[in-house]
Amino acid sequence: MNVRALNRALLARQHLLERTAQPAAAMLGHLVGLQAQAPLAPYVGLWTRLSGFRPEELAALITGRDAVRGSLMRGTVHLVLAEDALILRPLIQRVVASGYTGHFGRRIGDADLDVVAAAGRAWLEERPRTRRQLRDLLAERWPDHDAEALSYAVGYFVPTAQVPPRGVWGSTGPAVLTTLDGWLGRPLAEKPPIEDVVRRYLRAFGPASVADVQAWSGLTKLREVVEPMELRTVRAESGDVLYDVEDGLLPDPDTPAPARFLPEYDNVLLSHADRARVLPPGRRVPLPPGNGASRGTVLVDGFYRADWRLHGTGLEVSPHDRLSAGERAEIEGEAGRLLAFLDAGERPVRFTGN
């Protein structure tokens, strides 16, 4: 398969060729969650894939505990369905825990991590707390240790959830943590089937190599999992073996791809070891700070070719290469729909640079 064929397969499976009418929960499950360091980014991620999506629908899932925010794939914050969190966190736990090595690991000194984690869990079960509140409690119990490093240890080794109003449209607030199982009222899965998760990844992101699955999840040594599975295989132009589910969508590579606005950190840009299927050579994924729903990237003909940012005076589109008049018109039309979704009023759309 060439790059364009892989691009169109990815776009079709991500519902970026044509918006679909389905509940937000169904799309969240299909995508195996949305990356959510920027708390409001998932709202734009669902808007660009769903027809008729309203922010209140996703907000209700979060406040109703049907969807939850927490550290999952690659050790990064994701918004996933509650039932998926209970499956994914045990699988990803070693990835999350590995993030503690290095900077914080060197600062913890001789503190017993198991004891620290147990104390942190008890405090978070007592009531949700911010990291600063947790740090103050740890400092009181371990006055001779680095309280910040200890607080991060709790976050890495205790499966936690970020509770509302964090991530709720129209609300704001700091990241407040509690235990994941306590928040959802259900235990984490004891032996979650990783093969099922691999199939779900392929259905949303495939065809993909073993390295791609590892890049998405953060897990290693997955060849021994993937190769024995009964999966369809194809060859990339590079010669790499790509695995796929039997019913994975494979549209015609010449299928037109409309302009699409993606939020910060969208997994379309981050979930493959070989990102050529969506990133032009030499282009990196931007990782801006922010609360979400105010900036991101633009796909033109299926590839990342511009950035967008919402200002007080308008929506700014910054192309990375020259756009045709037709491409600019298409982007401008989609930008108008995004402004309407964001309830941003009659702001102009401006192009900068190219």
Rank of each mutant, 00 (worst) to 15 (best):
R89M: 00
L310R: 11
A85E: 01
F351K: 07
L180P: 00
M73P: 00
G206V: 07
E330S: 14
V317D: 04
E190Q: 14
R69S: 04
Y43D: 02
R49Y: 03
I108M: 14
D112W: 06
Y43N: 07
A325R: 15
L124E: 02
E83A: 12
A208V: 06
D146Y: 02
R283F: 04
V44M: 01
L79A: 12
D212T: 06
I331F: 08
A60S: 12
G312P: 02
S271W: 05
G185F: 13
W216R: 03
G170A: 00
R65I: 00
D144G: 14
P348G: 09
A24H: 10
A118V: 08
D110Y: 06
V225M: 09
G29W: 15
L11V: 00
V77W: 04
D266C: 03
E190L: 09
D252E: 09
V298I: 11
G185I: 09
L88H: 10
V349N: 11
G336M: 03
T48H: 11
A82T: 06
R328E: 15
V176F: 05
V241M: 09
P280V: 06
E190I: 03
P55L: 03
D66F: 06
N267D: 11
L269R: 13
L10A: 14
P348I: 05
G333H: 15
S71T: 10
A204P: 01
R121N: 00
R284N: 02
L6N: 01
S294A: 10
A189L: 02
D240T: 08
I87T: 14
A117M: 12
E346K: 15
G64H: 13
E264T: 14
L10V: 04
L262Q: 05
A149F: 04
Q133R: 13
A41Q: 03
A25Q: 13
D301F: 09
V241K: 12
D112V: 05
A5D: 04
L138N: 05
A147C: 02
Q214A: 15
R347Y: 05
H30R: 15
G167Q: 09
V198S: 04
P251K: 02
E57P: 02
P256C: 07
L242E: 03
E264R: 15
G336A: 08
D144Q: 14
L138Q: 11
R131W: 00
R74M: 00
G218Q: 03
G353E: 09
A21E: 12
R305V: 07
T160R: 13
E148G: 10
G239A: 01
L250T: 13
D181Q: 14
H320M: 11
T20K: 14
S324F: 04
L222S: 04
L137M: 11
A161W: 06
S71K: 13
G248K: 12
P55F: 10
H15W: 14
L50V: 07
L180G: 00
D146G: 03
D254Q: 15
T178L: 08
S324R: 10
G345H: 06
N291R: 14
E195D: 12
P187Y: 01
G170H: 10
D240E: 14
P256I: 08
V317T: 04
T179V: 02
L134N: 10
G333K: 13
A5Q: 11
A9V: 03
R223N: 00
N2S: 10
I62F: 12
A38R: 05
W308C: 01
M27Q: 15
Q133E: 15
